[in-house]
Design a protein around this nucleic acid. Sequence first.
DNA 1: GATAGTCACTAAATCGAATTAGTAACAGGA
DNA 2: TCCTGTTACTAATTCGATTTAGTGACTATC
Lengths: 304, 304
Amino acid sequence: MAVRITLKDVARASGVSPTTVSFVLNNTPRQTIPEGTRRRVHQAATELGYLPHSIARALREGTSRVVLLTTGRWRGGQSLDSFIAGVSGELRARGHNLVVHYGEQSDESLAELLEAVSPRAVIDLAGADLGQEGSDWTDGLAPATAAQLRHLVDRGHTAIALALPSGDFGALVEIRLAQSQRAAHALGIPPVTPVMVGQSRAEAREAMRWLRHEHPQITAVAGFDDDTALLAMGALSDAGVAIPATMAVIGFDDARPGAIWTPSLTSVHIDAEAYGRRAACAALGVEPEDWTSDPSYIVLREST
Amino acid sequence: MAVRITLKDVARASGVSPTTVSFVLNNTPRQTIPEGTRRRVHQAATELGYLPHSIARALREGTSRVVLLTTGRWRGGQSLDSFIAGVSGELRARGHNLVVHYGEQSDESLAELLEAVSPRAVIDLAGADLGQEGSDWTDGLAPATAAQLRHLVDRGHTAIALALPSGDFGALVEIRLAQSQRAAHALGIPPVTPVMVGQSRAEAREAMRWLRHEHPQITAVAGFDDDTALLAMGALSDAGVAIPATMAVIGFDDARPGAIWTPSLTSVHIDAEAYGRRAACAALGVEPEDWTSDPSYIVLREST
DNA sequence: GATAGTCACTAAATCGAATTAGTAACAGGA
DNA sequence: TCCTGTTACTAATTCGATTTAGTGACTATC
């Protein structure tokens, strides 16, 4: 850090001009440079420990080699973590870096950050493109949604409620509901019954009371996420409903609290890494190569 | 975004040279520029919507106006959120931006990010400076730690255990323990008994069995964080211990799951915003101005 | 033997702001 | 009148990498 090694230094050390060094290190097409020179340049670069100064490069190129990912209010879950890991890994393999901005998209700090970083691309998990249902992020959730319902159907349930949170999850709530209905149709069961469980234990109790009164045939609750499922499960416990005997509960996106609850919460583990990699490629405008994704799987615990 | 307004454009519009525009907009000291010219420049700048290009500026100045915050493995809690909000707010008030890097400090991606962003400063919550116990971050936790124990003492408890997590929380575990012992001393109670609850329900059960066998006089458990407290509380419930009648449990740093647990978890709400602001000032090498912090307070629920 | 084409390489411009080193114009003092 | 100082500016350099537009030297073609 003390002294910065520049292109010039490498040029001097290898006895060519900075231009040539740049050509060699960037493998610039339509430049014919003999193998001998290439080797000398590479050797000098590694010996001096040359690292291109990304700010200078960004000035020249118009954008930095950084991609910005905004998540909106959404924070939790393995799926987001693995998605981010996928994006980050793929970007780094392609010489880029990821900056994640947790927080609302309307936030002023986002605009300032955008200005400060001049990212090559922005992946917005909260914004409008998410509503399109064509995004890599929501695509990744579809098979997991199907797995969630399939698990309940396998255990003999056909009348199923979908517990949804209130609050600022944006379009995600509608998307998950739509995906669930599609999955229900494919599984040959009636449409799921959406129920808003609210934010507090009291609201959840009210919601569960309503559900059991209006839809007594329902024997299982699928959660929008683990938080929502736990809220519903707690409310059912409060009402003396036996879990899973009378009502089964399954979460989504296996978060930590579900494992230590009583009863512990069955959930769907989602590995969105591949979807993250795909999103990264899309952001850079490249064709993704490896294109297999680890399937999501059921984490079987006591609640189903 | 389509066309970038540069210093040159502003200079042309206001009839002076780019140099003068720069002097005016940056309020460069020891430059005498009459009020009339200043006004013309400012007006042209706002009319054209001039925004200095941060990448160009960063190249000239050697660093960008970004500060990087690394959190280590640590994720949870209001305290971190409020600390970050404080850092971000203060930085933005001083023309800087915050980039948060969640993840281990040994991570290669951190090094690359550092290179890619060239931040003015790095605030490392996970690293060595945290161990010094002089950092703004850990300073912010000390009064909250005291509040946690005081609540238990107020309720008549004197023999108290401190439930600690295993895993990669780094120096934070030792710091919290040391702070707790200091607080216990100040409150006139015997030192707290540390107990590792592990990661799983089974480990926690074992730990609680050991605790009750070896230290039967203990009537309250304080948690390193809410997660740890919940783990301990679940294990105690499993063993048929009445909460809070036989054993009281209190969390730390009020996270969401504690509110919806049965019984719901009393916790300490920590507002670390002021500490974040102070850390931001320290990172920029400025004297902090406003220097009052909101005290932490107890969120009273069923577990105590 | 003139012309075109490739090879191996370099000089110079560029990105946009900050800053150093000036330069005219005028005022005040000796 | 000459000298020094201040005011109000500006030209030119710098940060470091990329890229365009060349330039000699040599080879192949007609």
